[in-house]
């Protein structure tokens, strides 16, 4: 049975191995150089405190390969579900060969077990290898990425660490199960893709933020968490402030909500919104005394008045706990679908 499974699967496995070989070779060749450039850059910028500018420059330079390799890791599980999972049984049903193979002296439960086991393990191994290789390679870039593409950002999180293994196992078994129910290859592939993408969107939007109860805290306003501060040229009026999805002292945190609170504790602006703060812009710390205003003094004044950022976030230290929990959830989903597919192939299918 293992021989037959391998015989039917070896072309697909060889293709996957080739893709992975190219990917890991490219990463292995460029990775050390990337790391040394990062180390050199940090050594240069630390004395004169210009590391923000170095990060921007460094990340900007490598943004394209960064996005490309992350995309490969994100897409791999979906492709596995689409091209390995969905056709696994529909191909037999469409060609009628299930009638041939299910009449050999092998119970179809065992047939499915070997098929799922061998193909599924190869899929998981491929996803793990690509995930860990990309995690290793992009480490310097993850440390210098803009908040939207930081390690904890929904899309990047799914392309790092061990979750790709869980995604691949789940996508594969999902494809097999959908194939069993739909019985035709193309509709099964379409449905598998739709369901998998829906789940991959629902996970970071609805589930992942609550896997560990997020931290909610208030912070003083400053350079890190205020994205825009606008002081009108003429006529005075209030200062307008909009907040960034970042919290001071927790670099790389995944900020779920960032609200601006007024001195009474009322929310006056949500994430990305702009709110007026009644501080004089003609005189005082935020005023334009001839030249551009001194922002540090202005923030001291605004904080003194009692304006604060209230942020709900998952700190970066929770990256690995969240990775394990999410992988566990996908493992449970995979086991559930596997159980269902065994039940279905024995009771209902043919």
């Amino acid at each position: 049975m293992i021989w037959l499974t391998w015989r039917q699967f070896r072309a697909a496995a060889a293709l996957m191995a080739a893709v992975l070989a190219v990917l890991t070779a490219a990463l292995a060749l460029t990775g050390p150089d990337l790391a040394s450039r990062y180390a050199a850059g940090i050594a240069d910028c630390t004395p004169d405190n210009t590391c923000d500018r170095f990060f921007d420059r460094f990340f900007g330079e490598y943004q394209l390969p960064f996005i490309a390799v992350s995309f490969v890791v994100l897409a791999l599980p979906a492709l596995v579900g689409l091209f390995w999972g969905a056709p696994l049984i529909t191909r037999e049903l469409e060609a009628g060969t299930h009638l041939l193979v299910w009449n050999q002296s092998v119970a179809r439960g065992r047939w499915l077990a070997v098929k799922l086991g061998l193909t599924g393990l190869v899929a998981m191994a491929a996803a793990t290898v690509s995930g860990l290789a990309v995690t290793w390679w992009s480490d310097p870039l993850d440390k210098s990425a803009v908040p939207e593409l930081a390690l904890m950002a929904p899309l990047v999180f799914g392309a790092r660490g061990i979750v790709p293994m869980g995604y691949a196992a789940f996508a594969f078994v999902l494809g097999v199960t959908v194939g069993m129910l739909v019985r035709r290859t193309l509709p099964a592939m379409a449905l598998t893709l739709t369901v998998f993408v829906a789940i991959q969107l629902a996970m970071p939007l609805l589930v992942r933020p609550h896997l560990i109860p997020p931290v909610t805290a208030t912070f003083e306003l400053g350079r890190v968490n205020v994205g825009g501060i606008s002081i009108r040229e003429q006529g005075g009026g209030p200062v307008h402030i909009s907040l960034e999805p970042a919290v001071p002292g927790h670099a790389g945190a995944w900020v779920l909500a960032s609200d601006l609170l007024d001195p009474s504790g009322r929310t006056i602006a949500g994430s990305g919104e702009e709110a007026p703060v009644p501080v004089s812009t003609t005189s005082g710390p935020c005023g334009r005394q001839g030249g551009p205003p001194n922002l540090d003094a202005c923030w001291v004044e605004i904080n003194r008045l009692g304006y604060r950022q209230q942020a709900t976030y998952q700190p970066l230290e929770r990256f690995w706990p969240l990775q394990w929990i999410e992988t566990g959830i996908y493992a449970l989903l995979t086991l559930g679908l596997t159980w269902f597919s065994f039940w279905w192939i024995r009771r209902r299918l043919s």
């Binding site: 009628g96 060969t97 009638l99 041939l100 009449n103 002296s105 092998v106 119970a107 065992r110």
Partner: peptide, 17 residues
């Protein structure tokens, strides 16, 4: 499997891989 071994089945349109 023992029962499967005792019964051969050649399906309609004689499917092969």
């Amino acid at each position: 499997p023992a029962q499967l071994a005792r019964v051969g089945f050649v399906a309609q349109d004689t499917p092969v891989y």
